[in-house]
Each structure stands twice: as C-alpha cells, then as structure tokens.
Nucleic acid binder design. Sequence first.
RNA 1: GCCGGGGUAGGGUAGCGGUUAUCCUGUAGCCUUGUGGAGGCUACGAUCCGAGUUCGACUCUCGGUCCCGGCCCCA
Length: 411
Amino acid sequence: MKVSKPRGTRDFLPEETARRRNVENIMRQVVNKWDYKEVITPTFENLELFTLKSGEGVIGELYNFSDKGDRKMALRPELTAPVMRMYVNEMQATPRPQKLFYFENCFRYERPQKGRFREFWQFGVEVIGSNRPDADAEIIALATTMLNAAGIKGDLHVGHLGIIRHMLKELEPDQQSKIMRLVDKKDDTGLEDYFEEINIPVELRRNLLELICVTGTDAIAKAREIVGDIEEIDKFEQILIFLDAYDIDYSINLGIARGLDYYTGMVFEIYAEGLGAQNQVCGGGSYQLIPLFGGGDVPSTGFGLGFDRIMEVCEIMPEKQKSVVIIATDETRTDAIKVATSMRKELTVYLDIMQRNFKTQLSHANNIGADYAVIVGKKEIESGKLTVKNMEIGDQSQLTLDEAIELIKNS
RNA sequence: GCCGGGGUAGGGUAGCGGUUAUCCUGUAGCCUUGUGGAGGCUACGAUCCGAGUUCGACUCUCGGUCCCGGCCCCA
C-alpha cells in the first residue's frame, strides 16, 4: 500500500456508512421530537478555548498546530467548549433556555484502542440557561431515549456534585478539586492519604467516605443522614422524581465526581455492555463554562454520546430500499437514460455505464443484488411497454412506465 | 507514556533459510449484445518499511510503522 490512512482514523465503506447514517438519523429524529435545534461550529478553534476549559495539560492530547499567521489552533477534541463559545459570541440575547444539539467529528491525539479513535464522532446536547431540576431530568431522559432508539441497553448512573461540594465548602478550592478528582478515580487509598496530608476533621473524613459509597433506592435518605437537610439534596431528589415520571431506570451513585471544576450539580454516566475497557457511551451533567469564556452567569446542562461506541454494539440495520437496474442495448442507451430519469422521480435506479452487453448487464444486476431489472430494448421501445423482471423470482411482465413504477414501489 | 499479540493479492488464508509463494473469494473480459445466479477459459493481484546475519531472507535478528487487546488518561 502506497499511502495509508493516518493512525486512529477509519474509512467507512458503503455498507458501514449506511449503518452509521441510519442510526444517526434515528437519533436525530429523537432530538427533533424534543425540539432541540442543531448547531455547527468550526472543526478547529483557537487553542486557548480548550486550554481555558481543561488546562494546559490537554495540549498533549490535542491535534494542535500553528497556522500561517502563527496563530495557535487545535482541532476540536469535543464540542461543549465550542458551543459555549458560540453562545457567548452570538447567542447571549436569545431566549432562554436554548436547547441545542450537534453531531460532529472530534479529534484527540491518543493511543487508539477498542472504542477509541483519533477521529471520532460525538452526538451531543446542551441546554443553556436553566439550572432547574427539570432541565437536568430532561437531559438524562433525552440521552436515555436516544440510546433506546438506537437499541442500546445502557446502565444509567446518576449523581450530584452539589452534595459533596456542600460538605467540602469549608476547604480551600484547590483542596476541593483534588478530592473531587480522587473520588472520580475511586482512588480510596489516595483519598485517605490526602486526608491525612491536609489533616481534615475526622468527622468530615468519615462522612465523605460514607457519602461516596451511597447507592440504592434509599440513597436520598442516607445522604440526608450524613449531610443533613440541604438544598442540593432537595434538588437531586426532584430530579429523581422527574426521572420516575419519565419512567427511566437509574442507579444513584454519589461517587460520580467528574473531576473537573466546571461541573456544578447533577452528573450522569451511561455504560453499555460488550465494549471492553471503553464501555462508557454517554456522560453528562450540569456545568458552568460561560463565565470562563467571557459571558455572563448562565448555567448549562448537557451530555455527549460516543457515537462510535454506540455503533460498535448497535445491531440496527438500515432498511434496504428496492433497487432497480436498467438493462439496455447499444441502440437503446439514450432511451434508457430517459427511462431512468423518469423512474428516478419515484425510485432508486441504477444505470449501466460500462457499455456491457445484455447478458453481462443482467449478470451484473444480479451481482449487485438488484431487486428488479427493467429491460429497455428495441422491442420495448417499439411496443411502448417495458419488460420488468423480478430478479428474485425470475418472472417478468410487459408494463408501461407508470405501471412499472407502481409495481416496484408496491412490492 | 507503558505492556502483550499481530502484519503474505481488494477480502480471507497456507507455508517455508533456496517453492513458478498455497488455496478460497473478488474484479474485468470471453464462452454469438434479448435474459442473471452454475460451469469453463483468460487477465489483474501479495510477503508492511528499513537495516543486519547469510552464498541465499517472506522465513532469523534489530529498529520503525500500522493494526488488535490491556494499563494510564478520558474534556
């Protein structure tokens, strides 16, 4: 092979492309029904957008470059930051909330493995301008509905950072961040070591360790026991009540921390089986990024779906459309073009462009799995009736153009 | 960044220090340009790249690269 594709990228052949588009369309139908509006942002952005959000450390995992004007750029590694940037740049005066979605490719300079590529697709949703439980619940419900529509059985875990943040509010901000990161990693020994290091009170220490293990149906009650009656728990409970109304199964998991500072409250993750180490197909939560990009105090909530991982476990196959091949002879090629043009108003029509002989055209029609062959030969032109052959059964009949279209459409 | 397994025609494969490199499949054409699926014939087509060892390397060694799986990371 002379030129290979770049590491971590993929070619999608026609069959796989059709599968992907089909599932994409299924998910688009869902977001359309929920009245979310699609947006498109640039494939590359100023590098600063991503370092502001995720720190200088991300540069190691970005496709970044300097352009010819010596500006520092990066291919987008995700779309939340670009969408928030877009909001700050040109949507701040729009009615709230904004319910937006996107489906785009993203780029990360990482080691490829199962379910992880250097170019990958994210289907994401962001609600901008509401911090109500209603918004959080809608986001989770939408994510779940989209996955269900794609035939994915996911395991939904919901948590709330407000509760753990409330417990930590007396600590220094950087101490809070550090603890959140350790919780996110489920690094219990690291956590204990750190508690020791910064010497936090024994009671807080015990409560924290207890809280991050809270799961199950009585999680809310247990959390109240540990932290007391606080507004964050009320909010979380309200989200769960709404989720019940949406009839959604979930597990409560207060150990989800999503170790990044801009997450503010509800957080959730959805896992699917059959994906090996990279089994998370969806992650989201409420967050606050707009001030970071120079906008006002506008809360947001959203999620991203890992489309490639979804495709890996999705078994939905696109419906095959009836395919029609026009068979012509050398003297009727121009007539064949006219017939094809007429039929294409209603059907998908394949026309020979190899000047194959009659027999080989039919053979080729068979090869490409045609459902019908429409013969446009001298006899047909003279009689004004086409010969329509059912390639599966092998029978054929003489029909007018309109009759032929009807027959094939209704088959 | 780390660990392991791999790389032979478009796809799937066999093999071996010296072979015309195996087989299946595919594609194109032909077996009267008015009837496909079978069959026959012909053509196309490969040892990932580089260095080393050797009289001789697809085969052994080293480096690179890419693929697969795992760790780390995961916005």
